[in-house]
Write a protein that binds this DNA or RNA. Structure first.
Lengths: 218, 218
DNA sequence: AAATATTTTTAGACTAATCTAAAAATGTTT
DNA sequence: AAACATTTTTAGATTAGTCTAAAAATATTT
């Protein structure tokens, strides 16, 4: 049996190593998990014994195939629950994360596969992140970050990097949502702020916003 | 903060004391929780410190108002999730219990109240048990057990006492579900078995079945 | 009411996950 | 490459929940 805590560590390692392949160091996990490095060492030993991770002392960890499988399954569950919360239970995209953190640990294949069908097999969650299918395959979207978009081109908003409530509420208040059509009007060399037009408005966003918004050329 | 284990003990005490009022003894809790009496003693001390239970050594426990509030809230969540699983995710009534045991511990008022609304405020779960509303009020149904039904009368099936998969599958295979109309034809004095007619069939059920099926006169 | 049986509690130990503080290994500077 | 800084690991303690085995209280039988 895999514990809730083990699942959370595996998920953290997966995210920190962008897909479980790169090695991740102890301190990075500690700060992601809001715990101490010594606790991390204990846990990665355990994950290694259970064959979810490969670990050599002082050299960091990588996930094994098993570990990656566990991680992808949790991500699948997390994102499907997020879709459910937004589409069926009137949650806004800045409210879903915390609840989904708990729902993702419920263990029932029937539950998650029926939920998937009930939601009509969504491919992306409310933040634009891809939802792996039953076999763990992601649907990849070509996307670029607003900070690197071309002046004069038109894009569709397809995702965010920062999923914090603060950032998502900022987007809401500026009428930016997934699917919003954006034209890049001007990039200010002084501070890298960007002027853009939306359906009915023109706004200027700072560089830190521009770094967290993903677009797709249309 | 209340832990998952504490919640499960509180729920067990509530069920064993039929509404949290009667005192419950240690061994009863131990067997309900599949644990040892010594563990129960430790836990009820803790529940007592946290003011969820009243406890005097060797005298058993009762729930406090706080404890009852916690129990009713968990039962509300459990039963709402059961309705969701059956109505939206194609679970059958014998499959829902185990998953609901986990879902019931997810803590989010918004989640559960929106779920309630999404399901259109159901008053009873798939086994006929009443679902408490936001304030903790149950909708009581007048019901009698089949074993005590009158020969010659007609009833509607409104609930079960035993919610085990075995019993529910037995009912399925005999085409008995919530809402099924039943007429009691004969009660055999020798073994208390009961002959009854359903919509299109006539069957004989044993006393142990008759003790676990709830009816309402129509 | 004394003897016996049952129930409940205590005492002490175990596991999972965490912590602090110190030791060991690795990395970086000069 | 020696000195310093950082990162990682170890050692030992803590907490929640559990266990076994023995002691204490309560209940039942004769």
């Amino acid at each position: 049996m895999i514990t809730l805590t083990e699942e959370n560590y595996i998920k953290a390692i997966y995210h920190l190593s962008s897909n479980g392949e790169k090695t991740v160091n102890t301190n990075a996990i500690a700060s992601a998990m809001q715990t101490k490095a010594s606790s991390v060492t204990d846990m990665i030993k355990k994950l290694s014994e259970k064959n979810y991770a490969d670990y050599k002392k002082y050299q960091g960890v990588t996930l094994t195939d098993d570990g990656r499988r566990v991680a992808v399954n949790i991500i699948r569950k997390h994102r499907l629950w997020e879709v459910f919360l937004v589409e069926k239970l009137n949650f806004s995209w800045d409210e879903v994360h915390e609840v989904a953190e708990h729902l993702e640990h419920i263990k029932s294949d029937k539950l998650i596969n029926e939920l998937d069908a009930f939601l009509e097999f969504p491919t992306h969650d409310p933040h634009g992140d891809p939802i792996p299918d039953k076999e763990g395959n992601f649907k990849h979207i070509e996307k670029i970050v607003l900070a690197k978009a071309e002046v004069g081109s038109t894009y569709k908003c397809v995702g965010v990097d920062d999923t914090s409530s603060k950032f998502l509420k900022y987007l809401d208040s500026n009428h930016i949502a997934l699917g919003t059509i954006i034209t890049v009007k001007h990039k200010e060399p002084y501070d890298n702020s960007i002027k853009l037009t939306l359906e009915n408005s023109e706004i200027v966003v700072s560089q830190s916003v521009a770094k967290n918004l993903y677009l797709k050329k249309i």
